[in-house]
Design a binder for these strands. Structure first.
Length: 435
RNA sequence: GUGGGCGUAGUGUAGUGGUUAACACGUCAGGUUGUGGCCCUGAAGAUCGAGGGUUCAAUCCCCUCCGCUCACCCCA
């Protein structure tokens, strides 16, 4: 992305909707990743990595070619062989493709997998929304029982709590399956036709095409109408009804472990991807602003079949790490540890400067974190540098030390007890001699 | 795609229709001979987002564009 620069060379900036994660910010991401891996492992989920791009058809069939994601948000390109590829806009389709491709139905079911990495959607950026977004997600494929639904929700909740994010709320709903949903959609259309004059223009346009979306409308007058609309849970077929009832019972069973797990059944909760069936859910932070959903997911019992596999149930969620990180920061749920080298080598004079690197190499090889202070600076400047690097010790070598063969080790942190130092004078002296 | 807000050193902010655009943090250098943090001094660093217009004169007023940002849409 070129912007006005000085002279003929343009200055570049990160593309719209993307951003750099600088070293100072990395600890937050490590915290989020490591906590995710630990949580997933506790639930028996193994990591899967799939390509950043997939055949375009996979997303058109899987996500649904009527969805906004497919219609206007995909980064699609043709490669030099003429194949149409798309940067993955979400994770479930790729994981299901891998499940089919590698015959994972031959493993004990369900197959539990988690993933984390970048996803790409061409959207207008705003708070909590990016063109390159990072997600952590899980999928449990091959078991349609409600226990798995609740296991997945529990995992998500547990993860968020492990990040010390509090005040979140869970919303759940059931949107039925291919058997019972058509009747519900008819009822919904029927209802909205009766209120056609009171809903917004957008809603009028999508009434026939995507009636579920009307429930999701944020406008106050539409919300009032949506509140009184027919509920999907009143139209469930027997199987879906039994499943839904069990999910609620099982969900209540989590309250002993998570007393703050307050969930609400929200019959206006629908989701924007076509593959969802039965259970859908979202977790939001307390002060829900615009783009605030932290985690969203649901069951997708028809997806595997849709993309060419034998009919197989599945359920999962995806969680926006960009949003998670900002939530962690705002709640101060994580304090990055102070980091710094064990030693900064402060060297005086040409001779010492020439030996500093070899000395550093020897110490590093012994497992000690070493930085060589910038050459050509005064001792004071090198000491200041050591301090600003948050080093534990400054190892000073100059003419005196070169002659005696022993470096001077100066502790830089008040609470440092020199007797506990692994860096004894002997170690230093030895390193000096061998250097 | 549609709206609103905002663009001044690396970062965060001041400021004014009129000679060298200010402050803080940060960076670098000093505060005598080889010892950090605190303090003091100094330096570097901004064609005041870009282009055009009004004016004797614009960083300041007007227009356009670009960028950032927030919201809608949709989603994580």
């Amino acid at each position: 992305m070129a912007v006005e620069g000085v002279g003929l060379i343009p200055s570049f900036r990160a593309p719209r909707g993307t951003y750099d994660i600088l070293p100072d910010d990395q600890p937050y991401w490590s915290f989020a990743f490591e906590t995710a891996a630990k949580t997933a492992a506790r639930f028996g989920y193994g990591r899967i990595d799939t390509p950043l791009f997939e055949p375009t058809d996979l997303f058109e069939r899987g996500v649904g070619d009527a969805t906004d994601i497919v219609q206007k948000e995909m980064y699609t390109f043709e490669d030099h062989g003429g194949d149409s590829l798309t940067l993955r806009p979400e994770g479930t389709a790729g994981v299901c493709r891998a499940y089919i491709e590698h015959g994972l139905h031959n493993q004990p079911q369900p197959v539990r997998m988690y993933y984390t990495g970048p996803y790409f959607r061409y959207e207008r950026p705003q708070a909590g929304r990016f063109r390159q977004l990072r997600q952590f997600g899980i999928e449990a494929i091959g078991d349609g029982s409600p226990n798995v639904d609740v296991e997945v929700i529990e995992l998500g909740w547990s993860y968020i709590r492990s990040l010390n994010i509090t005040g979140t709320t869970l919303r759940v709903n059931s949107i039925g399956d291919s058997e019972c949903r058509p009747a519900y959609l008819d009822a919904l259309r029927e209802y909205y036709r009766g209120h056609i004059d009171n809903v917004c223009d957008d809603d009028r346009q999508r009434l026939e095409r995507a009636p579920l979306r009307l429930l999701d409308c944020k406008k106050t007058q539409c919300q009032r109408i949506g509140d009184a609309a027919p509920k999907s849970t009143d139209f469930l077929c027997d199987d879906c009804e039994a499943h839904w009832t069990s999910v609620i019972v099982l969900l209540d069973g989590l309250k002993d472990t998570y007393p703050d797990l307050v969930y609400s059944i929200d019959h206006r909760l629908v989701r924007g991807l076509d593959y969802y069936t039965r259970t859908v859910f979202e977790i939001e932070p307390e002060r829900a602003a615009g783009q605030s959903t932290l985690l969203g997911g649901g069951r997708y019992d028809g997806l595997i079949e849709e993309i060419g596999g034998v009919p197989t149930p599945g359920i999962g969620f995806a969680l926006g790490l960009d949003r998670i990180i900002s939530e962690v920061k705002s709640q101060e749920g994580f304090v990055p540890p102070e980091i710094g080298p064990d030693v900064v080598i402060v060297h005086l004079g040409d001779e010492a400067g020439l030996r500093a690197s070899a000395l550093a190499a020897g110490l590093r090889d012994d497992g000690i974190g070493v930085l060589v202070a910038p050459a050509g600076r005064s001792m004071r400047a090198q000491m200041r540098y050591s301090n600003s690097m948050n080093a534990r010790y400054a190892l000073i070598i100059g003419d005196r030390e070169l002659e005696s063969g022993e470096g001077s080790l100066r502790p830089l942190q008040d609470d440092e007890d020199q007797s506990e130092v692994p860096l004894t004078v002997e170690v230093i002296a030895k390193a000096l001699r061998s250097g």
